[in-house]
Computed example of a mutant assay.
Amino acid sequence: MNEVIKVKDILHALDKITGGRCVKSLDDVFSGRNKFVIMKSSNIPGKACMEMPGLICGNLEAPVKKIAVTMTLTECNIELAGATGVDAIVAHHPVVDAANSGGVTIRGYLNLYGLSVFELHEAFHGLHPGIAYIHGHKAFHADIAYGDIPGNVLYVGKVLPGVSTLGAILDRLNEFMGMQEEQKMLLSEKNLRNCHDICETNVATGGKLLVGTRENRVDTILHIFPHTGFTAQHLEMAKQEHPDADTVIASISRVGTESDLVKKAEELGLNFLIGNCHAMEILENGLPLAMALQKILPEVEVVLFRERITSTPLNKVGTTAIRDYADYIASEYLVNKEGGTGRPA
């Protein structure tokens, strides 16, 4: 007879995977002893978020037969889980009431489908060398709070055997992330919908060079993540600490050619390469996490939730019926309101 896996077993597995970084009690949340319980705030009133790695919502004794690993919890995730027999969702990114549950309070929505939800985020960062590996280098130094900023990650690495140029890094990314398949999927959608103006995140945000050519040699890499707060001043400091560095890789998030980071790289004589975007982290971090859970809890089924985000011109969205519906609602109820034209004077 197979052992019954419960929500508490998932928490134990996640705590094992993270080396004890998960919250096990309320004391962990409020005592300050768990450094991975972090407040994130842009000082927008009422929009702060507290990261709490571990169980966010659910009954520790509830049985689990199927787990889904996702990047960011959304109402689409919740609905897919409810429709496909998922009992627990492990989200990489922090979960916030309403924001991650379709604008409604999260507990009631999850309870409706008998779902438990976990989060990890910063508690998962720095546990493995995978993101560096995918980008063609082996990190010999990792800092997940560079400049004393939690979550401001810096990897410093030496290129792997066979990866000697910027072009080799770009080719490696395309192979690992299945970019040919992503391009074929997008082309199929364009043809099916008879709309060649559809854009899709993974295809639109592939790797690219901002400073340097495909033939430029690479040896020592500064791997940064611009959205975490990594600045031009940090880059200058990192170059001073690692004078052999010749290349900057920016991944998860991206910058443009006019970025201060790019200008500083040029000033310092560094190549600058854009790597995988945030949408690919489901494969970089999510897939290893899912496989680790499967190895620790072989009795349960583990699946990966992936999202494709597309951009479509309004005159090509959906069916004629739904476009006519939207036009009617917009015209009769949203634009031509009593007492106004719907346009500024």
Rank of each mutant, 00 (worst) to 15 (best):
residue 103 G to R: 04
residue 191 N to D: 09
residue 188 S to D: 10
residue 42 S to C: 04
residue 273 L to R: 00
residue 49 C to Y: 06
residue 340 G to P: 01
residue 13 A to Q: 09
residue 128 H to W: 03
residue 7 V to Y: 01
residue 273 L to F: 01
residue 30 F to C: 07
residue 307 E to F: 14
residue 318 G to C: 04
residue 265 A to R: 00
residue 33 R to H: 10
residue 93 H to D: 05
residue 324 D to S: 14
residue 167 G to R: 02
residue 48 A to W: 11
residue 16 K to H: 13
residue 327 D to K: 12
residue 311 S to K: 15
residue 327 D to Y: 11
residue 32 G to A: 10
residue 217 R to V: 04
residue 308 R to W: 15
residue 294 Q to I: 08
residue 334 L to S: 09
residue 91 A to W: 03
residue 315 N to A: 07
residue 32 G to H: 06
residue 306 R to E: 15
residue 75 E to R: 07
residue 127 L to N: 13
residue 189 E to H: 08
residue 38 I to R: 13
residue 118 F to N: 01
residue 50 M to A: 09
residue 73 L to C: 08
residue 146 Y to G: 07
residue 47 K to S: 12
residue 152 N to L: 03
residue 89 I to T: 05
residue 150 P to G: 12
residue 221 I to P: 01
residue 255 V to N: 03
residue 198 I to N: 06
residue 157 G to C: 14
residue 100 N to L: 03
residue 141 H to P: 03
residue 332 E to P: 03
residue 8 K to R: 12
residue 173 L to F: 07
residue 287 L to F: 04
residue 80 L to Y: 08
residue 108 G to I: 01
residue 223 H to K: 08
residue 325 Y to P: 00
residue 238 A to C: 13
residue 282 I to Y: 08
residue 25 S to T: 11
residue 243 P to E: 09
residue 197 D to A: 14
residue 28 D to N: 13
residue 38 I to M: 05
residue 243 P to Y: 10
residue 284 E to N: 13
residue 246 D to N: 13
residue 44 I to A: 10
residue 5 I to C: 05
residue 115 L to C: 08
residue 323 R to K: 11
residue 65 K to Y: 03
residue 275 G to T: 01
residue 112 L to R: 13
residue 170 L to W: 00
residue 125 H to V: 14
residue 56 I to S: 02
residue 312 T to E: 14
residue 335 V to C: 07
residue 105 T to K: 11
residue 111 N to L: 09
residue 159 V to G: 00
residue 320 T to E: 14
residue 226 P to T: 12
residue 160 L to R: 08
residue 250 A to V: 09
residue 247 T to R: 00
residue 288 P to K: 13
residue 319 T to Q: 05
residue 162 G to F: 05
residue 144 I to P: 05
residue 9 D to E: 09
residue 206 G to S: 04
residue 64 V to Y: 04
residue 218 V to S: 02
residue 329 I to W: 13
residue 289 L to F: 04
residue 235 L to G: 02
residue 4 V to A: 13
residue 95 V to T: 02
residue 210 L to A: 01
